[in-house]
């Protein structure tokens, strides 16, 4: 697990920075390219990818860097979405939530709240889940996510099964979020900020401890690290990122429903991380782009696209270790390690 920004000599890292800058410029210019090539739907697709990249990068912190295989990350993603939906509902009705929390349609209010609430949920359920490890941890995170799924299905006051419509995107001062490209840039800015934060975390002392826990939790404990606390904080940060992504997605789709918390969504987030390469900084973004692109493409061909995606996924796991970069190695004939 080598940081792409830190390998090789100064020249190579300069080249990488340049490549990153070009990539970012291309991403920023994407709405113009979309209009110029007559495919305005591309902006909306790109917004989804950017948002899911945030969620995948968050999961990657837990899964790729710390080795916590969470199969329930859609729960925090959905909770973030529901915070936006519920605040919008109370903003429209004018009735305060629980009698004292007024609703809001301001992104600067809803987004931090979504992150906070997702963090709280992941703190409580994470504290319980982290009492287990290995395969139990996979099962228990899945089960807790399913519990929250049923909670929102039963939450008739906020639409239950049918979900909640957010009629208008949350507002930002001086910025018109209702405009597609503008909202894309807003999401892109959040994504860049989140990836920078991930980069800082991974290269901090805290990040090194997480990597140590992934490699051998017993040894970390032996040298005196209270591993449980590190894992929990990692899990909470990871949940907060997913909450941010969910809140942005609720704004983008202008709709939240229990489907956001469905376990297949958790599975898709994991696939994005693995596809892009777990424990690499930008891997999850690439994974999100490839998976969403592939799904869109396959869905355009056939209604039964999952019958193709499923076997593709199995082949990918069986024959390429480490997702896309593994695939690249396989094509070059290099060694898979």
């Amino acid at each position: 697990m080598v940081d792409p920004l830190k390998t090789g000599g100064a020249q190579r890292s300069a080249l990488k920075l340049l490549a990153l800058a070009v990539l970012l410029a291309l991403l920023a210019a994407l709405p113009f390219i979309a209009t110029a090539t007559g495919q305005p739907a591309m902006t909306s697709l790109a917004t989804r990818i950017v948002i899911l990249a945030i969620a995948a990068a968050s999961l990657n912190l837990a899964l790729g860097y710390c080795g916590l295989v969470s199969f329930g990350h859609a729960a925090w993603y959905g909770v973030g979405g529901y915070v936006v939906g519920i605040l919008w509902r109370h903003h429209v009705s004018g009735e305060p939530l629980f009698g004292f929390i007024p609703g809001s349609d301001q992104l600067l209010v809803t987004l931090p709240l979504a992150i906070l609430v997702a963090g709280l949920f992941s703190a409580v359920l994470g504290a319980l889940s982290l009492r287990t490890s290995g395969v139990q941890f996979i099962m228990i995170t899945l089960a807790f996510a399913q519990m929250l799924f049923f909670f929102f299905v039963a939450l008739k006051a906020y639409g239950g099964d049918d979900g909640l419509i957010v009629r208008r995107r949350n507002a930002l001062p001086f910025i018109d979020t209702r405009d597609g490209p503008t909202f894309y840039w807003v999401c892109l800015a959040f994504a860049v900020a989140w990836f920078l934060l991930m980069w800082r975390i991974v290269n901090s002392r805290f990040g090194k401890v997480l990597a140590g826990i992934r490699q051998s939790e017993r040894r970390m404990a032996a040298i005196g690290v209270a591993t449980y606390r590190y894992k929990l904080v990692c899990f909470i940060i990871s949940g907060m990122g997913a909450g941010l992504a969910g809140a942005l997605m609720a704004n983008h789709a202008r709709f939240v429903s229990p489907d956001m918390l469905h376990w297949t969504q958790s599975g898709e987030l994991m696939i994005m991380v693995i596809l892009g390469g777990a424990g690499t900084l930008l891997g999850p973004a690439a994974g999100a782009a490839v998976l969403i692109g592939l799904e869109t493409q396959l869905a355009a061909w056939t209604e039964h696209w999952q019958a193709i995606l499923g076997p593709l996924l199995v082949l990918m796991i069986l024959f390429t270790r480490g997702g896309l970069s593994g695939l690249a190695r396989l094509v070059r004939g290099g060694r898979n390690d």
Binding site: G267, M270, I271, I274, Q306, A307, L309, G310, P311, L312, L313, V314, I317, L318
Partner: peptide, 8 residues
């Protein structure tokens, strides 16, 4: 992940 693919 592989068995998830099988479910799909």
């Amino acid at each position: 992940l592989a068995t998830f693919g099988l479910i799909l």
